[in-house]
């Protein structure tokens, strides 16, 4: 019924899997980050950006993760809404704070790069504005979940809001193509291949994989926390009724 990894739909199986998978992803993230940072600081300065090019190794993966995590949030929300799957709802709820953190990182590090390169901390450019809207969707999702005491109503309302926000993902991705933008266009995921020099591409990809592994680890840990929270609330309710 559920196309996602079916063996994970059982909370007991998920807890057994995540118990070893979370630290494994965390260790992989640390190794990849060390390698990525090493190559990033061993790479030569860019002829135009100078040393600010090193901000790209932490900014671009954060920006990619901001969209990837929202896609995870949207998918989990869809599974929760359609199949009423409690673990999918826990996954959605667990993804939101991580996605908000990655999006905030993308905005802050982008601003720190933009000041010396563009001469401005912020411009109301289509890419930057759509990423800010993405951040606001994350915050609104968390605020909505926190505002409703009824877990089922909060899950349903949050899932609907998350699915509305999915519309923003193609806007973020294609904003640099659809509108005149100060932000540069895609330079890695292109039909004709990356246009980034290898000295910058390798550390960038390593850092992107490190961010992805870190998210995998933290997401699993947060979902485990959500499963325990729901078990605790069920036990407390049972004790109150007894």
């Amino acid at each position: 019924m559920i196309p996602a990894p079916a063996f994970l739909s059982n909370p007991e199986r998920f807890m057994a899997f995540s118990r070893w998978a979370a630290p494994m992803f965390g260790a992989i993230a640390v190794v990849l980050a060390i390698a990525g940072l090493w190559l990033g600081f061993a790479a030569p300065e860019d002829y135009q950006q100078g040393d600010t090019v090193r901000i790209m190794f932490i900014h671009v993966p954060a920006a990619w993760m901001s969209m990837f995590v929202y896609a995870c949030l949207g998918t989990a929300s869809f599974l929760s809404l359609v199949f009423r799957h409690a673990l999918a709802d826990a996954a959605a709820q667990a993804a939101a704070p991580l996605g908000a953190a990655f999006t905030a990182l993308a905005l802050i590090t982008g601003s720190l790069w933009g000041r010396p390169m563009w001469g401005a901390w912020w411009v109301w450019d289509a890419r930057m504005t759509s990423v800010l809207v993405l951040f606001l969707f994350y915050v609104a999702y968390m605020a909505l979940r926190a505002a409703l005491d009824d877990e089922a109503k909060a899950a349903r309302a949050g899932a609907i809001l998350a699915l509305v926000g999915v519309v923003n993902l193609p806007i973020v991705k294609f904003s640099v193509d659809w509108w005149n933008s100060l932000h540069q266009g895609a330079s890695v995921f292109r039909a004709d291949g990356p246009t980034v020099a290898e000295v910058f591409l390798y550390p960038l990809l390593l850092m992107a994989l490190a961010y992805m592994s870190a998210f995998g680890s933290l997401w699993l840990v947060r979902i485990r926390g959500e499963v325990w929270r729901r078990r605790a609330e069920a036990l407390a309710l049972r004790a109150a009724r007894a």
Binding site: D51, L112, P116
Partner: peptide
């Protein structure tokens, strides 16, 4: 392709 670590970010250290 890759040399020694370059930790001197001047003149952009205040941003990097």
């Amino acid at each position: 392709m890759f040399g020694m670590l370059d930790l001197d970010a001047s003149p952009y250290g205040a941003f990097v």
